[in-house]
């Protein structure tokens, strides 16, 4: 479990996160949602250790992130897989080299073993015959799948995704969502997704944390979203007419 307690982060004296506390459980897809500028990315980067919070505790299965030595932090980071918004694949490396990179850095495996692992994860994300291609030669959806393959190649315990389906067409976005969902269950990871795509939230989000101006405004499940009277959430979710209709349909169905 990842436990976050009273997390504060500021930049040049301007508070961005103001005392966020929540928990993320194993085998579940947790989603952080909110408007642009609500602090989602900063929150995610604090969890990843890319930003050091001014105050608060982040605990990974009992290990307090802020109290770990550099060596222990490096060890913890090996247990983390991250899918960045743009994929963040290394341009100068082929798909195969990109995915093999963490294995080369952190394992003593033979090249043939590493290649087998690369092919296995590529197969898992439904990509084949792309080993020798460079990221620039792939479509956005394929790049995201390579990024997911790289994130899971070390069998991580924690998977973080920053807007994994932004910029993708609805079909590819659904494919990526389903893939993340399947992998989370298969590897029993703690998956945390930063998103403002309500389709993803409704489809795969098992726990939702809603941020507004750096404060946790609401948390619950995707089912609870339809029932909540929280004004901030209602304004955000039903800014789209489609979701108003979905809510009506859902409430009629459950009557």
């Amino acid at each position: 479990m990842i436990e976050v307690t009273d997390l504060y982060k500021e930049f040049n004296g301007v508070p961005v996160l103001k005392g966020i506390s929540t928990t993320f459980e194993k085998g579940k897809i947790n989603m952080i949602i909110g408007q642009s500028g609500s602090g989602k990315t900063v929150f995610l980067k604090c969890l990843l250790g890319l930003f050091v919070p001014e105050k608060g505790v982040i605990c990974f299965d009992g290990r307090k992130h802020t109290e770990l030595s550099i060596k222990q932090q490096r060890q913890l980071r090996k247990e983390i897989g991250m899918v960045f918004q743009g994929g963040a694949l290394y341009d100068s490396l082929t798909v195969e080299e990109n995915i093999m990179f963490p294995l080369k850095m952190f394992t003593k495996n033979q090249p043939s073993e590493m290649l087998d692992r690369v092919n296995a994860v590529l197969k898992r994300v439904n990509l084949e015959n792309v080993n020798k291609k460079f990221p620039a030669e792939l479509s956005g959806g394929m790049q995201k799948r390579v990024a997911i393959a790289r994130a899971i190649v070390m069998n991580p315990k924690y998977l973080f995704c920053d807007e994994p389906n932004s910029g993708l067409d609805p079909i590819t976005a659904t494919v990526i969502d389903n893939l993340i969902q399947e992998i989370t269950k298969e590897y029993q990871m703690i998956t945390i997704i930063n998103s403002h795509d309500m389709n993803s939230v409704m489809e795969i989000g098992e726990k939702i944390v809603f941020l507004k101006n750096g404060v946790k405004a609401w948390e619950g499940t995707n089912k609870d979203i339809f029932k909540t009277e929280n004004e901030v959430v209602v304004d955000f979710v039903y800014s789209s007419n489609l979701f108003k209709k979905v809510k009506e349909a859902y409430l009629n169905e459950t009557k």
Partner: peptide, 17 residues
């Protein structure tokens, strides 16, 4: 610089490099 703005450096850091 391109690695920085495309989060490739963040990807290295997240891996513990």
């Amino acid at each position: 610089g391109t690695m920085r703005v495309t989060e490739q450096i963040d990807a290295l850091e997240v891996m513990g490099i």
